[in-house]
Amino acid sequence: MSNVKIYPMTLITGLVPGYPTPELSLETAKTLHKSGADILELSASFSEPIADGPTLQLAHQKVLSSNFSKKDAFALYKKIKDETRAPLFLIEYANVIYQIGFEEYYKKAAGAGINYILVPDAPLEESAPFAESARAEGIAHIFMIAPTTNDERIKMIVHKAKKHTDPFPTFLYLVSVTGVTGSRKNVSDETIAFIKRVRSTTDIPLIVGFGISAREHIQALINAGADGAVTCSPIIDIAHNLKEKPEQMQNTIARYITSLA
């Protein structure tokens, strides 16, 4: 388990493993890491991605129709780990873990070098088997907090997440807006107020995701008390638009990440 220092600003950059191809997603991971990403987010493909906007839905569809299996995915994570040594943050929908089996799944993930796992459709109430199996393998289960989450609920989530601060570094994933993944123009006052509200309840690092695609966004989040940000959809968009020109794809992704840091 690598010890991640979430200070002063952690940049998490996302990719969809297997998209546009396994080879290109490995290249993308390396590019992201070299360009300054602190943690690599791996958005694993699921046929019913209810938390994802059009960009990720399309990528997931393409990955699944290329017959990229979970076995292939774990092998790719391992390669990404071996070649970058970056902390890896995996997003996986609940049914995938359920079908593979909790114990088996987290064992495989740990073997592939995964450090954090978030299950977007397993809220606090359903989190126990996921979080416990993760813990048994030295993986931190990452909890989400949304703008609709009230203070009482934030306290309960923080309480659960704290179980993971020792011995594991952990963070809370704040969903910046009500909605699905995808780029948005700016950071709203509501998002700022939301970050401040969560910040006042805990000192666990806060990472903000959904809709972040510019340095000004991240600056605004950090000023409000966040410790870092996730950007994913813009990277997928670049990969999509330049899938026929791999070199240009990597250069454009590198420029994008450099522009954020």
Partner: peptide
């Protein structure tokens, strides 16, 4: 049964 939905929907 249960409630396997994103956190955003839980309060709803």
């Amino acid at each position: 049964g249960g409630q396997y939905v994103p956190e955003t929907l839980m309060p709803a």
